[in-house]
Design a protein around this nucleic acid. Sequence first.
DNA 1: GCTCGTTATCGTGTTTCGACGATGAAACGC
DNA 2: GCGTTTCATCGTCGAAACACGATAACGAGC
Lengths: 115, 115
Amino acid sequence: MKRRRPDVGAACPPAAAGADGRPVDGPAADAELAALCKAVGHPARVRILRLLAQRNECICGQIVAELPLSQSTVSQHLAVLKRAGLIRGTIDGPRTCYCLEPRTLRRFRALAGGL
Amino acid sequence: MKRRRPDVGAACPPAAAGADGRPVDGPAADAELAALCKAVGHPARVRILRLLAQRNECICGQIVAELPLSQSTVSQHLAVLKRAGLIRGTIDGPRTCYCLEPRTLRRFRALAGGL
DNA sequence: GCTCGTTATCGTGTTTCGACGATGAAACGC
DNA sequence: GCGTTTCATCGTCGAAACACGATAACGAGC
């Protein structure tokens, strides 16, 4: 039983991201910052984040068209960003529409600023 | 004779500039942010940066003592941070004294903030 | 000069990443 | 139903990251 098409979030998944007000240092924050940085630490993923920032939201196919990478590779990068909570994907018919997750992004900026 | 300036792209007026005048987006900035994030994207390296921020400067041995890693592994993490320009190491007799590189750190914060 | 303490580098094994093509799964139009 | 479009996942491969012990380099002190 291979479940394809996991839930990409019905429309507004909680994303388990904490709101602001959490500490920007300490062991937990260290791990959090490291994980977020690791997710951002690839040129293609930075590019994806920038695209989403420009266009507010983006069909997966549009992102693939902008990058010099295969569709499967882009899909993997999207999965990395999603796992890190930096983006959100909502199924829109046969497509998947990606957008930034502002909360995590703010959190990332706060942690980076705390360095 | 030293070069006057390491080519900062004299002729091209940047669209968006950080505090130091360099752009915070565009292909070059994408690669730069990705490289910096990749360097920060490991818990041990975040920890090292935090240690250096607390103590201002740190002998390599002190860092090794604070981390649950072998001396050679810590030395490698330090090399990664140094290669990324985030820290600087000066030889002090038989020891090596590490400290943060504020310029790169500011640059990192600017780029992260530009996301 | 020799030894000791400190740190960088080497060699190695294991794990993870990054890329791709191929395959499969859902939604849609017919 | 059936094929198309769109995207996620699988399988695979090479390259890089990560961790360690062992070893080399380098000053300092005797």
